[in-house]
Simulated assay, not measured.
Amino acid sequence: MSVAATLLPDYQFCERHQRQCRATPAALIAAVPRVQPQSLPLVRVLLQLRELPARLLRDPARQGRPLFGLHEFTLLHRDEHSLALGLAGRFWRRDFGLASIADADGFRSFAEPGVPRLLLTFQAQANDGGSLLCTETRVHCPDRASRLRFWPYWLAIRLASGLIRRQMLAAIEQAACKPD
């Protein structure tokens, strides 16, 4: 059973991307935490656009905070072939409505009404040309109300989210191929 199937077997929304890479699976997975998506120029612009309403309205929940990034996620799993990060929140809100998740057990058992869980995984598999690096994002909405709120948000951010994931995969490969 995959890490994603163990951590979030039921979900309503999913997005997958992959990239053929020159690095080993272990090097790719080790590089994931070193990549800060908000430091990538295109990703930074997309995140700034996403956070613009909160900043214009001087939302106290976002004032003085860095751009949304992987630092908001909880590490749920890591081995030499995969890494999983989790997040819970009302993502459609200006401040993302984030809830605290302590660990993998807390993520699996989190069941606050109206608060979706998001699982972001990276998996790397060796193949003839190096490794195939895959990322998958799954979102589970616990009830009809959260699905109805999340659906328009998903439609609005899906294209940008895909661009961000592809930029991240390229940056992970680049980081994995750099000598230390």
Results as ranks from 00 to 15, higher is better:
Glu51Ile: 05
Phe68Asp: 01
Thr74Met: 13
Val35Glu: 01
Asp180Lys: 03
Trp151Gly: 07
Thr121Ser: 15
Ser161Phe: 02
Pro113Asp: 04
Phe91Ala: 03
Gly64Ile: 06
Phe91Pro: 09
Leu42His: 02
Arg117Ala: 10
Val43Thr: 12
Gly106Ile: 11
Ser82Lys: 13
Ser82Gln: 11
Pro66Cys: 06
Arg166Asp: 01
Tyr11Phe: 14
Ala5Ser: 04
Leu67Ser: 05
Gly162Thr: 08
Ser109Gly: 15
Gln20Phe: 04
Ala31Asp: 05
Gly69Ser: 15
Leu28Thr: 04
Ala102Leu: 12
Gly129Met: 11
Thr6Cys: 09
Ala88Trp: 05
Ser161Pro: 09
Arg158Ile: 09
Leu57Ser: 02
Leu119Tyr: 07
Leu163Ser: 00
Gly130Gln: 02
Phe73His: 09
Arg144Gly: 11
Gly162Lys: 02
Arg44Asp: 06
Asp103His: 04
Asp143Cys: 10
Ala156Asp: 05
Leu133Thr: 05
Ala31Phe: 10
Pro41Cys: 00
Arg58Trp: 05
Ser146Met: 00
Gln123Ala: 15
Gly129Gln: 12
Ser109Ala: 14
Leu52Glu: 12
Arg50Met: 14
Leu42Tyr: 12
Arg58Pro: 07
Ile101Trp: 03
Ile164Lys: 00
Ala170Lys: 07
Phe150Asp: 01
Pro113Arg: 12
Leu87Gly: 00
Gly130Lys: 08
Gln38Phe: 08
Ala145Phe: 05
Gly114Pro: 04
Ala4Ser: 13
Phe68Met: 14
Leu98His: 02
Arg117Val: 15
Gly114Ala: 02
Phe68Gln: 02
Pro37Val: 04
Leu52Arg: 11
Gln12Gly: 15
Ala124Asp: 08
Thr137Met: 11
Gly162Ser: 13
Leu67Arg: 07
Cys134Ala: 14
Phe13Thr: 11
Gln48Arg: 15
Leu159Asn: 10
Pro37Trp: 09
Gly86Gln: 07
Pro53Ile: 00
Leu56Arg: 04
Leu87Trp: 05
Leu56Pro: 07
Trp151Asn: 00
Leu42Thr: 08
